[in-house]
């Protein structure tokens, strides 16, 4: 729909654009090394690190595979693994 200047009244519409397909490497979290510091969760620019009760996982529908989480993890618990199809 053509709105004035391309404005969008309904917020949160970017969630409709799934950006996981852009990824080359995916983060794999080794929970045995995790110290629950939250650095990956804080630094992820796409809010793709999911954190619940000290457990961490990755929302692969939006993770673009930038590797910031892996770089910032102080214990090296996040490994970037080549996506294979």
């Amino acid at each position: 729909m053509v709105t004035l200047g391309g404005h969008i009244k309904e917020t949160g519409s970017t969630t409709k654009t799934k950006t996981g397909g852009w990824r080359t490497f995916k983060p794999v979290i080794h929970m045995d090394k995790c110290v629950d510091c939250g650095c990956c969760w804080i630094f992820c620019p796409d809010m793709s690190i999911l954190r619940k009760d000290g457990e961490y996982s990755v929302d692969l529908e939006y993770c673009k595979g930038c590797g910031i989480c892996s770089r910032e993890c102080p214990t090296g618990a996040i490994e970037m693994v080549l996506e294979e199809k």
């Binding site: 053509v2 200047g5 391309g6 404005h7 969008i8 917020t11 519409s13 654009t17």
Partner: peptide
């Protein structure tokens, strides 16, 4: 609201 957002080839 969102201003200056994205338009793909269809719009």
């Amino acid at each position: 609201i969102t201003l200056g957002a994205f338009a793909n080839p269809s719009t």
